[in-house]
């Protein structure tokens, strides 16, 4: 069964077509790459999937359910977590608190419990802390749990965003340029972590990434977009040598629309 299905999704900003009819499916427990030149519409697609933007046309299906036009918080609660291209950690909060914020799915205590600080509230807090610690461990951030998130280097902030997203216990994780600003060693570590999330936690991962070595090594399928439209889709080995991909990336003119690499 497919976790995510986009059907002819369109999004226009005041006459500018950012996404023009993209169709794609992401299989369960896949690591799926979404690539394309700057301005190709990748982040816009993420924003449409997560409800930040309402699509102007087409449908977004998650686990078979049509979620087009849902509000972001509802999409997140349904099981789609994400990170942001322009890092959006809660800067003044500690690393641990950042992760705990996303704990709405395991939240049992209500406001009155919190005011009374009763047993239910206490169990909640312990559970939040335990789970946050676990996730920080996975993302290699446990040592800085009590630091203000804004003081971390960029690479760590990107990993913190992943840990925070995991706190939602999602089925689907959308990573927007997770390797940006990382050196090759950090990037290699990130690859290992992404595989861990899929292999051990059973997540489906979709990532937008410009670092081709990361994309080619970690993704099983890659979908290429340019000017808001699908160029091709296939396994890394095929996409890598697709003439229109080379053209889109190297800026060459391609005389004829070459055969699509879709199976």
């Amino acid at each position: 069964m497919n976790v995510l299905e986009l059907g002819r999704v369109e999004k226009t900003f005041g006459g500018l077509r950012a996404v023009g009819g993209v169709t794609l499916s992401v299989a369960d427990k896949a690591i799926f790459g979404l690539i394309g030149p700057n301005g190709a519409g990748k982040t816009t697609l993420f924003n449409v999937i997560t409800g930040v933007y309402r699509p102007d046309g087409g449908t977004v299906r998650f686990l078979g359910q049509d979620i087009s036009g849902w509000a972001p918080a509802r999409v997140a609660a349904a099981g789609i977590a994400r990170t942001f291209q322009n890092i959006r950690v809660f800067r003044s909060m500690t690393v641990e608190e950042n992760v705990m914020v996303a704990g709405h799915r395991i939240h049992r205590a209500n406001l009155l419990d919190a005011v009374l600080r009763n047993g239910r509230w206490e169990r909640d807090e312990q559970e939040f802390r335990r789970r946050a610690t676990e996730l920080l461990e996975i993302m290699n951030l446990r040592g800085v749990a009590r630091e203000p998130a804004g003081s971390l280097p960029y690479g760590s902030q990107r990993r913190l965003e992943i840990a925070r997203a995991l706190m939602l216990s999602p089925r689907l994780l959308l990573l927007d340029e997770p390797a940006a600003g990382m050196n090759s060693q950090e990037a290699a570590e990130l690859e290992r972590q992404i595989r861990f999330l899929r292999d051990e936690l059973g997540l489906t991962v979709v990532l937008v990434e410009h670092n081709m070595s990361v994309v080619m090594s970690v993704c099983e399928r890659i979908h290429v977009v340019d000017h808001g439209e699908t160029v091709c889709e296939g396994p890394p080995a095929e996409v890598k040598v697709h003439p229109r991909v080379l053209a889109a990336y190297l800026g060459e003119e391609v005389p004829e629309p070459a055969a699509e690499a879709t199976p």
Binding site: T50, V52, P72, A76, M93, V101, A102, L111, F128, L168
Partner: peptide
């Protein structure tokens, strides 16, 4: 409490807070 953390998250970055449900 979780409410308070969420309130601070709203102050810091509302878009991210929404994406965290």
């Amino acid at each position: 409490s979780q409410t308070g953390r969420s309130l601070i998250a709203i102050r810091e970055d509302e878009v991210a807070a929404e994406a965290m449900a």
